[in-house]
Amino acid sequence: MEILLVEDTAADAELTTRALHKRNLANHLVWVKDGAEALDFIFATGAYAGRDIQNSPKVILLDLRLPKVSGVEVLRRIKGDARTRAIPVVVLTSSREDIDLAACYALGVNSYITKPVEFDEFARVVGELGLYWLLVNKVPGG
């Protein structure tokens, strides 16, 4: 498992997956559909109780607008826990003007993608960021 995609919109999840697939980055991708499920997965609780917490994703692609637990809250929990703090988190925002973006910076987001309407552009930025965090960036102990 290399990428955790936290995305409630199925269409966006598919577009993201396709964009990563184009760069051969989607082979080890896990998709969770809301903030609560994301936290369960990351901290190996609830439905994911049996999962090895050490086996953390190389990058988390996090949508900000999520049901149950918001993306900002998920980010706060990841960056507030020593076991998960080092996992790179890339925030996916609907637009550059998203009011939650400032909060993400304060919480130590590693990077963000504004999801463009145009797919070619969307595929390009998602692909580049995936490539960067998976192949170029060296996570300590990762």
Binding site: T9, A11, D12, L15, S94, S95, K115, P116, V117, E118, F119, F122
Partner: peptide, 9 residues
């Protein structure tokens, strides 16, 4: 923007 992205995509 979200549904629009799906349509365009």
């Amino acid at each position: 923007r979200t549904p629009l992205r799906a349509v365009a995509g």
